[in-house]
Amino acid sequence: MRRLLLALPFALLPLAVAHAAEEHEHASLGAHEHGVGRLNAALDGQTLELELDSPAMNLVGFEHVASTDADKAKIVTARTQLENPLVLFNLPKAAGCVVAAQELESPLFGDQPPVDVDEDEDHDEDVKDADGHEHHHEHSEINAHYQFTCAAPGALKTLDLANIFNTFPATQKIQVQLIGPSGQQGVEVTAKAASLKF
């Protein structure tokens, strides 16, 4: 099934190219953009895989390594919420889905180093200190991968992302690439329109 998710971007490449052509040159698919998350979803038989990628800013309110107790508490809270995907994705009870595997990764969790901002790119996050020296903020992502086994996958008619927007209000939109029984689709969901059909 992991291969299915890895193939998803290639299967949806025509949709992504069409969507990217409509976007501003600064807001391309896959780019680190605050307020925007990405979700790959694939339903194959009884297996549902979801892969959520989001700038840490959307989920915890910052992207630096936590040094204060308040920041550390925010990371623990976000991680705890991400560790409960049945609630986060509001999967229908009738589908009988159980978590078969899950993996959370982020430099904020101590898994990997933060990504430095490319100095050739123009970013609003460049900061000058009192001496006039520029400092670049680091970008941190939070990646969550879930695999569910669903006893009645036919009951998965929709994927409701409202709880993600409610839990992480800094998330303004999620770019979704989905493969399901009715084919493949690439859509953008918001808090006001947080549900999509499989």
Results as ranks from 00 to 15, higher is better:
Met1Asn: 13
Met1Gly: 10
Arg2His: 15
Arg3Phe: 14
Arg3Ile: 11
Leu5Glu: 14
Leu6Gln: 15
Leu6Tyr: 15
Ala7Asp: 14
Pro9Tyr: 09
Phe10Ile: 14
Ala11Val: 03
Leu13Ser: 05
Leu15Trp: 12
Leu15Thr: 08
Val17His: 10
Ala18Met: 06
His19Gln: 07
Ala20Cys: 07
Ala21Arg: 11
Ala21Pro: 14
Ala21Glu: 14
Glu23Phe: 06
Glu33Gly: 10
Arg38Pro: 12
Leu43Trp: 02
Asp44Asn: 12
Gly45Arg: 03
Gln46Pro: 13
Thr47Gln: 12
Leu48Val: 06
Leu48Gln: 04
Leu50Ser: 01
Leu50Cys: 01
Leu52Ala: 05
Asp53Gln: 09
Asp53Thr: 04
Pro55Phe: 00
Asn58Ser: 11
Val60Phe: 06
Gly61Pro: 06
Glu63Asp: 14
His64Phe: 09
Ile75Cys: 01
Thr77Met: 10
Gln81Trp: 13
Glu83Ser: 15
Asn84Leu: 03
Leu91Arg: 04
Pro92Asp: 10
Pro92His: 04
Lys93Ala: 15
Lys93Arg: 12
Ala94Asn: 05
Val98Gln: 15
Gln102Lys: 13
Glu103Pro: 07
Glu103Gln: 15
Gly110Pro: 13
Gln112Trp: 14
Gln112Asp: 14
Pro113Val: 05
Pro113Leu: 06
Asp116Trp: 15
Asp116Val: 04
Val117Trp: 07
Asp120Glu: 13
Glu121Tyr: 12
Asp122Ile: 09
Asp124Leu: 07
Lys128His: 14
Ala130Pro: 04
His135Trp: 08
His135Glu: 15
His135Arg: 04
His135Gly: 07
Glu138Trp: 03
His139Ile: 03
Glu141Asn: 09
Ile142Pro: 00
His145Gln: 14
Tyr146Met: 08
Ala152Thr: 11
Phe165Ser: 01
Asn166Ile: 02
Thr167Cys: 04
Phe168Thr: 00
Pro169Phe: 09
Pro169Thr: 02
Lys173Asn: 06
Ile174Cys: 01
Gln175Ile: 10
Leu178Glu: 02
Leu178Met: 07
Ile179Phe: 10
Ile179Thr: 02
Ser182Arg: 12
Gly186Asn: 04
Val187Glu: 07
Glu188Phe: 05
Val189Ser: 01
Ala193Asn: 05
Ala194Tyr: 02
Ala194Pro: 08
Ser195Asn: 06
Leu196Gly: 00
